[in-house]
Each structure stands twice: as structure tokens, then as C-alpha cells.
């Protein structure tokens, strides 16, 4: 898919946003009490200083705004390098930032 050189820019962006979009619409959080705030962390690597690849992360409340940021992030990188965002886990503060609910 996005790895394929033929994939369009839009396809690549859509591919990486998909997990976040799924999470957002999945309503999986309801299983965990509904009112609890969940945070999602995405991780990726970026080329820094032109050579070394450095790991970065972003964490936010899973909402449209975070999704928008992720989209902008892709749009920035997709033209420059192949920088996938890997959705690592969602977690709650109340649970000590540890639990990863399954979805």
C-alpha cells in the first residue's frame, strides 16, 4: 500500500491515519467506563540533522483535533521522507499510564 511507489500522496496519508480514525469511531472506550479520559500515543522516527533517525512521540486526547495534527504531520513528512506514525497504545491516567486496551 503506501510502501508501494505507486501509492498516491493521499493514499499514504489516509493509510497512516486509518488506525486513529478507527480508534476515534470505535467507541471502544465505553468498555472502560465511558467518562475516563484516554490518551493516545503515536511514535515515529524523523531524520535529524540530515542523517540520523531520531525517535519521537506525540500524545494527546483522542479527538478530532489530535487527528488533525496527525494529518498535518503526515502531510509535512510524506513529501520529504517516509515517516510512518505508529499508533502505539492508548492509555488512561487513572490506570497509571499502563494499560493498553485491546481493540
Amino acid at each position: 500500500m503506501p510502501e508501494s511507489p505507486e501509492a498516491s500522496r493521499e493514499q499514504k496519508i489516509a493509510f497512516y491515519l486509518q488506525p486513529l480514525q478507527e480508534l476515534l469511531s470505535a467507541k471502544i472506550f465505553e468498555r472502560h467506563g465511558g467518562s475516563t479520559t484516554y490518551y493516545v500515543t503515536v511514535k515515529w522516527k524523523e531524520p535529524r540533522e540530515g542523517s540520523a533517525w531520531e525517535p519521537f512521540s506525540a500524545t494527546g486526547k483522542l479527538d478530532e483535533r489530535f487527528l488533525n495534527w496527525a494529518k498535518e504531520h503526515y502531510e509535512h513528512w510524506v513529501d520529504r521522507a517516509h515517516v510512518p506514525l505508529n499508533v502505539e497504545k492508548i492509555e488512561t491516567l487513572a490506570q497509571g499510564l499502563k494499560e493498553t486496551p485491546s481493540w
Binding site: 524523523e46 519521537f56 512521540s57 506525540a58 500524545t59 483535533r65 489530535f66 488533525n68 495534527w69
Partner: peptide
């Protein structure tokens, strides 16, 4: 924030926190 992690000036860019930032 993701901007702090990269040592960039964010100003009013709407960046999220990093994992470290959350902690």
C-alpha cells in the same frame, strides 16, 4: 510537546504533547 522534543519554536502551532510530556 512534539515541538519541544525537536527544539523548535512552536508559537501558536497546535502541537500535542509527547509521551514524556504526558508523564
Amino acid at each position: 510537546s512534539t515541538g519541544n522534543a525537536k527544539d523548535v519554536y512552536e508559537g501558536q502551532l497546535d502541537n500535542p504533547l509527547t509521551k514524556k510530556g504526558l508523564e
